[in-house]
Amino acid sequence: MSSEAYFQALMQILSPLTSDERAEAVAFFQDYAEDGGLTDGDAITKALGTPQQLGRQILADYAIKSSTASGSAASPKANARQIKTIVLAILSAPMTVPVAIALFVIVLALLIVIAAVSLAILLVLAGATGLGLGVGAFSIFAGLFLLAHPMVALSYVGLGIAAIGVGLFLIPLLKWTTQGMFNVVARFFRWIYRHIRKQHLEVTQL
């Protein structure tokens, strides 16, 4: 095989990489071959291994590192690659396609229901809080203008204060509920990710 054929094969194997990463890697080894006087595919293979071996080693280095273990936020590119691998892991899991699709749809439906219900609860709570505070303030304000009719004014102010009280009471409840929901969602996704990673690890060990 010629030198060109070698590096064309290498290019192919490195297709999972971005074009920049691929170009850089191939350039490095092309330069190495030139500087080392490796003029044909056999010489290159003797020094670097077959395009498959070399390519796999390069890819392995680009593979998903346990960025979750280090705790730091992964770059968007690493995330995209992770998602791709996770989806592949799901699709390549040992179950028939219809079952996989059915499971996926069920999970999706459940998620939608949960999301809708939580959103509804959140909106009602937020609405009640806002209403309480807003109506309360307005009521007090209105009451102050009706000082000519002190009893009416007093009842307006009283109702206003009560409404504000309800609103103030609801604020910490709202905050607690929101935080709680975010927590649950985050934990759920972490659980899914861990579960998928286990599957992915099992798949790659086959």
Partner: peptide, 8 residues
């Protein structure tokens, strides 16, 4: 050592 090790 192999250049394939050194590149990464």
């Amino acid at each position: 050592i192999s250049p394939s090790t050194l590149y990464p």
